[in-house]
Design a protein around this nucleic acid. Structure first.
Lengths: 229, 229
DNA sequence: TAGATTGTTAATCGATTAACAATC
DNA sequence: TAGATTGTTAATCGATTAACAATC
């Protein structure tokens, strides 16, 4: 809304709510910038970013404006600078402490630990409801019982969590996580979680997505859908 | 909008566009109905469905009304009947012919073939750009070159496709698929695809989701997000 | 009949688009 | 200066909520 010059705060800095759709597009814009950077460009217009991701140029400018005035009239946006700014906004370079609930999935697919680390998400605790899994080692972590979720999450300052439990436990786990102060949940189950306001949930579940695609197969005119995204 | 009695068509039947958010919630409602069915209930009120998935009851009724008048005043919705109807709407019980592009992922994780079959998605063709993979067998299918995508997709009447290629090939593949008439794409790459109007894209990518969650970690007040929806 | 809950309309809210003055 | 593109406002569009008459 306003530029960040001389102490005038942006919407973002004022804590004004920014829609999830805008945040999803910020990721798209970053993707576009990476593409332009590969082509050795140093400056782009909102129009070029817009075309690359399939939105209108005014929307690109409006989205970016929530976070500050990053461009220069008649010139455009400096790619390296805007990349840096979007990464800051999305906290991409900050290390995030993550809890993982549902040890089996991580035991089956230990490569996930590195995949998370690639995104600066460090798995700091693993929990499981199944008492036979207690104490089991995953990487250099010991599996804890889900009764400890609230306390451990609070003590370690964990802000995000992954739910990879059997479906029937997912909602209980979400309740415990949010009680412990978790603000962001990645839900790998098909369960529709209900969480308090202010907590973000992202769902990643193949079967659920297939269900939605199925509707569009017949040609029920759908357009781009973020997972999302 | 209107009931389906005596030839009066629903929004759905008239081909009026129904928002992606509504379709996502239809899946949620089905989830809730499955839960209620487990508890041996036979009838529910919109209010109960709403509470189970975290929306307002009026929205549940409005969403359902796009597809027909499934409830009875002062009674509610018959669970078995509504389950059946939503499954019809989402085409869940219909077999969908699916193309898969990017053979490596399927070779690495052959269990995906059955996972898709569980959702009535039959993988009818596999394509790859890498000529060294041509003719390779996956299940009972032979890998075809991506030059054949348009023709094969058309001939087999394929309506949906999965893109699991290296990032740099994803947009080209999307272009070929849509040229061949594909109306629904499941995108397993982090690429932001641009597709013609009327084509649905669902993204399933862990790194992209972590990027979005990262924003909400600090407590930038987010609410429920579908990947999702 | 009295009470409950649907289907649907009208009011509100939020997000996108169009347009343009300000700026480089 | 003339031309281009931003940041931002006002207009439009669409989705949610509130409310209620119709129905069981």
């Amino acid at each position: 809304m306003t530029t960040a010059i001389r102490g005038i705060e942006t919407d973002f800095e004022r804590g004004i709510h920014i829609s999830e759709k805008t945040i999803a597009r910020m990721r798209w814009y970053l993707f576009a910038l990476d593409e332009f950077a590969k082509e050795d460009m140093s400056v782009v217009a909102s129009r070029e970013i817009a075309d690359k991701v399939g939105v209108k140029s005014g929307l690109v400018r409006k989205d970016l404006c929530h976070f500050g005035g990053f461009g220069r009239p008649s010139v455009g946006y400096n790619i390296a600078y805007l990349q840096k700014k979007i990464k800051e906004i999305l906290r991409i370079n900050q290390v995030k402490n993550v809890a993982w609930v549902g040890a089996q999935r991580l035991a089956d697919e230990p490569a996930l630990i590195e995949k998370f680390a690639d995104s600066n998400c460090e798995i700091e605790a693993v929990f499981d409801k199944d008492s036979t899994k207690l104490g089991m080692r995953i990487g250099n972590l010991q599996v804890l019982g889900i009764g400890e979720v609230e306390a451990v999450v609070q003590n370690l300052g964990i802000e995000a969590a992954v739910i990879a439990t059997p479906s029937e436990d997912a909602q209980e786990v979400a309740d415990r996580l949010t009680a412990g102060g978790v603000k962001a949940i990645l839900n790998l189950t098909p369960v529709v979680l209900v969480v308090p306001p202010g907590v973000a949930v992202r769902n990643v579940d193949l079967a659920s997505e297939l269900m939605m695609l199925s509707y569009y197969c017949g040609g029920n005119g759908g357009v781009n859908g973020l997972a999302h995204a």
